[in-house]
């Protein structure tokens, strides 16, 4: 159900602007991650350079979302669902900025890899990228559509990405022993794998924030606690 408008139109405008900036950050972050991975897999330094350069815009958007969020808290003193909207937007923005940093890290490693002969093991990154991006897109979808079920379903999917990261790491360490001349390249791929694993962590955080925004429920640290039992 769509909530009725506020009596204060400026309140609705401010909330809409905050949300639009978060969604813009999300689009830019998704694009940067795709460019960084494509730059790696297709050995395209140009794409890597663009991914690194775009980080500045995302950093500025993060600051803008924080500024607008604080301004909203100050001017309108939101409560209930409005307060959750503002808080979750600010938290999402922080996670998006960190995701974009991972895109920059991947792009930097890709440029180093591109200076040496191609490693077939770079293909190990492809399924991890697909898994992390699916989590990321679903987290944003869950936030936009206030879909609590979808958001909840994302949290356990992080285990799959963690497992892919571990398997990739094991395989790359094996290859280091077999092919020590390319040791630096395999290390760079391990680093990229780790970056994607972190993207999954941020997507999980965003899914948890989506649940909080839509249902006022804090589901953080429940999955890890139950998994540990």
């Amino acid at each position: 159900m769509i909530a009725p408008k506020h009596i204060l139109g400026t309140f609705d405008d401010a909330l809409a602007s905050l949300r639009n900036n978060v969604l813009l950050m999300s689009s830019l972050t998704e694009r940067s991650l795709d460019r960084a991975i494509t730059g790696l897999l297709q050995r395209d330094d140009e794409l890597c350079a663009i991914a690194i350069a775009d980080d500045e815009e995302i950093d500025q958007l993060e600051k803008q979302v924080d500024k607008d969020g604080i301004d909203l808290l100050l001017r309108f003193q939101p409560v209930a669902s409005d307060l959750r909207r503002v808080v979750s937007a600010m938290k999402l923005s922080s996670n998006l900025e960190r995701m974009a940093d991972q895109a920059t890290n991947i792009a930097r490693r890709a440029r180093k890899l591109n200076q040496h002969p191609a490693l077939p093991e770079a293909e190990l990154i492809r399924p991890m990228h697909a898994h992390a991006m699916a989590m990321f897109k679903d987290a944003i979808d869950a936030y936009v559509r206030a879909d609590v079920d979808l958001a909840r379903s994302i949290v356990p999917r992080d285990d799959g990405l963690d497992e892919l990261n571990r398997a990739t790491g094991r395989r790359l360490i094996e290859r280091m022993a077999e092919d020590p001349e390319q040791l630096r390249g395999y290390l760079n791929l391990i680093f990229v794998s780790r970056c994607l694993e972190r993207v999954g962590d941020h997507a999980t955080n965003m899914a948890e924030d989506a649940v909080y925004a839509a249902a006022a429920e804090d589901i953080r640290h429940q999955h890890s606690a139950s998994a540990a039992k």
């Binding site: 009725p4 506020h6 009596i7 204060l8 939101p78 209930a80």
Partner: peptide
């Protein structure tokens, strides 16, 4: 209640 406290009461 939500509509009142969030200022959506028309």
């Amino acid at each position: 209640t939500e509509e009142y406290i969030t200022g959506r009461f028309g």
